[in-house]
Nucleic acid binder design. Structure first.
Lengths: 148, 148
DNA sequence: TATGGACTATACGGATCCGTACTAAAATTG
DNA sequence: CAATTTTAGTACGGATCCGTATAGTCCATA
């Protein structure tokens, strides 16, 4: 309640979120063109980046990580599986779940993706102070917390 | 060259970008469901949020702001125009450009969107320190700078 | 061990996104 | 001022995204 006090004349409101959207689109676009040789869509890049650590995951886990609905995640996995980047298998303990694991080829692609991520990130973070990065992480965590 | 030195055991690399993606999806999803009554897609919400200040813009300007390609932006504007949220007119000085302006109804919808943005933002930022927010903005600016 | 409820993933279809190709208008060049 | 180049926006088609509906599996309860 009391909206007016929130929107002071200094702060139009929502600017932080608008900046968030812009930065996401800009970085994802750059990575897509930078990784054009791999012929991956932004979602696929995102999926590989998350799987890069080699730990197997279920569809739900990956979907939550890349911020896609289960139906979307299935489609992304379909394409990555068809290209030989990963395998799907029933999870031993729970036959409802599917265990997603990178193939050798998938690990190579994921490593390339991960390197591009790290490179862009390093290039950007070199220009700011460590305490700014800490603040950045704190705000992202708070946004994630507030969005539920 | 020399991949090993980049991926130190402490920092997997790219974590900041992965967190960025997650936060963007999470917040946009929450706003979409919160504004379900307006029947708007994420892109349309983003467009209205950017136009909310009432300042007319061209298609390119808006596209850059919401991080969409020109062809995508045209489609978004088609839908918003059809619903009476905005008008398209030739720009006086440059007849290649199109001047986009919110209608009365569009301004009302944009105000609602903007309020939802501000509310979510305020809820999240209340949990962090002001200097964290400053760092957040600094990092986003640096990411935008590095992505070009 | 049945039965009902919750959870995991997918098939399907409609809406959205964007690359290619195009038209029109402005800016530049000679 | 004509020819060329650059820029703004759009039409079209294919790929992607995701809501609804569905099949299979686990779990709790009696």
């Amino acid at each position: 309640m009391n909206t007016e006090s929130v929107e002071s004349r200094l702060e139009p409101g929502g600017e932080s979120l608008l900046a968030l959207q812009r930065a996401t689109h800009a970085t994802l676009h750059v990575l897509t063109t930078e990784l054009a040789a791999l012929k991956l869509t932004p979602s696929e890049i995102n999926a590989l980046a998350n799987l890069a650590d080699g730990r197997p995951r279920t569809v739900s886990e990956l979907g939550a990580a890349i911020g896609s609905k289960p139906t979307t995640t299935t489609g992304v996995l379909d394409r990555l599986e068809k290209r030989g980047h990963l395998t799907r298998a029933l999870k031993p303990g729970d036959r409802r779940s599917v265990r997603i694991e990178l193939t050798e080829q998938g690990r190579a692609a994921a490593a390339t993706v991960r390197e591009a991520f790290a490179e862009l990130e390093a290039r950007a973070l070199a220009a700011v102070r460590p305490e700014d990065v800490a603040g950045y992480r704190a705000v992202l965590a708070a946004l994630g917390e507030a969005a539920r």
